[in-house]
Design a protein around this nucleic acid. Structure first.
Lengths: 236, 236
DNA sequence: CAGTATAATTGTATCGATACAATTTATCAA
DNA sequence: TTGATAAATTGTATCGATACAATTATACTG
């Protein structure tokens, strides 16, 4: 493990264990440098990482403080690692509706930046949280990257498999959110009524090298749709 | 202006002017160092900033590449600077419904971390985009921080005034998203029907020193609610 | 005691140097 | 031509040093 990541993890653990609340102060830089036997640059890098994650904020001349959002039961929108890792505290299960290799739709091909005659894994599943329907998901995986999927993998955590099983590094993703009304099919799968509200999110996931590998379209059950999100001003 | 921010701006401008597309390669670090007469650390810092903003991504051993999302007409969710700066390309106007100094609701007091008998500015307005209703907004500003507001400011950009007029530095914010159905009042203001879908976002804005100064509750017109969002994996 | 000037604290910006890891390109053998 | 191996390219991690800016604490003054 890289040093500054290790430091970040230890600081985060420290915050957890000491149950520090929003605004509480961490030891000053000098102390952290000594404690972790690292240079100022390295500790700063760890802190910048934690700041990006929304765990701390730094105030020049004052100190390093814990950043906490107050509410529980909200799903973080920015995890980018799939929901399974995000929702460890919840009971998350999946029912696989479809799983096959096929040709992509024009839309999927365009997003994945592949030819329409190349192969994709198509996955359709309903996901449940604490026994309630959470969402209906349709995903297209570029088969030349995600070379193999089966029912077992798909009914558990696809992203865990992609990272650990295939050894791929996930980079960034673009999310597009819409609000609308459920059509009949969606309503049926989610156990709601046609015309009920829906949150619809299309996501294009990329590897660390910039290749898009997964285009997914997810329709959320509005009753379970509580998301949170931490923003930071980038100045410019 | 600080050097690495200046470099970031210039790189971004370069990308704009040359209309670089997703995946196109920028000059290598060495070149940028020479071009901007800056050390490797400084250029790297500028690039990290742009990466955080979702403008580029870096691949070790390979290069620095432009990151672009494809779709237009979507509102960025993470700007954190208010919508006015975000939506420069659109015609954005506001109709002020209410503006006064009052005592906060229990909820607002809790979020702003103030006593219930202290003063807040209360602002209620409907915002229009290209002549259509975009959202209904209710905001509570901690009056001991945002010391003055008037109708003119509120009908334009409150955040611009806070930054430029009051000289305050905006730090981070927490967003909580819900999907639901419009009640009668909301429907009326937005020109929609009761029971129609809504996206409801509560945001708690903080200064750079961590003080919360604005708690706002916004109900979006689902017909205009197209948001996008760029995520990056923080590894840990 | 209030207000202000000064000093100490504490994070931020910048430089530059060294070593390293991932990727890409070049080389060469089969 | 293919495929492995070596070399070159290019970003990342880490150290450490200097100067600086914002905040907070202290001392001083009236």
């Amino acid at each position: 493990m890289i040093k500054y990541q290790q430091i970040a993890i230890e600081i985060e653990t420290y915050i957890e264990e000491h149950k520090l609340q929003q605004g509480e102060k961490l030891p000053v830089l000098e102390t952290l440098m000594a404690q972790f036997k690292a240079s100022k640059s390295t500790v700063t890098k760890a802190l910048d990482l934690l700041e990006k994650k929304g765990v701390v904020f730094q105030v020049r001349g004052s100190g390093i403080f814990v950043r906490r959002h107050k509410r529980t039961g909200y799903i973080g929108l920015l995890s980018n690692q799939g929901f399974t890792s995000e929702l460890e505290d919840f009971q998350l299960t999946s029912e696989v509706i479809e799983l096959d290799v096929r040709k992509p739709t024009q839309e999927a091909a365009l997003n994945l930046n592949i030819e329409e005659n190349s192969d994709v894994y198509y996955v359709k599943r309903v996901r449940y949280i604490n026994g309630q329907t959470l969402c209906l998901e349709e995903s297209f995986y570029n088969k030349s990257i995600v070379t193999y999927l089966n029912n077992e993998i798909v009914s558990q955590s696809i992203f865990h498999y992609i990272k650990e099983g295939l050894g791929l590094k996930i980079g960034f993703s673009d999310l597009y959110l819409h609000v609308g009304k459920l059509n009949e099919e969606e309503a049926t799968y989610l156990g709601l009524k046609e015309g009920d509200p829906k949150l619809f999110i299309e996501t294009l996931f990329h590897l660390a090298n910039g290749q898009p590998f997964d285009f997914s379209k997810v329709t959320y059950n509005y009753e379970q749709s509580q998301f949170f999100l931490q923003a930071t001003s980038h100045v410019l």
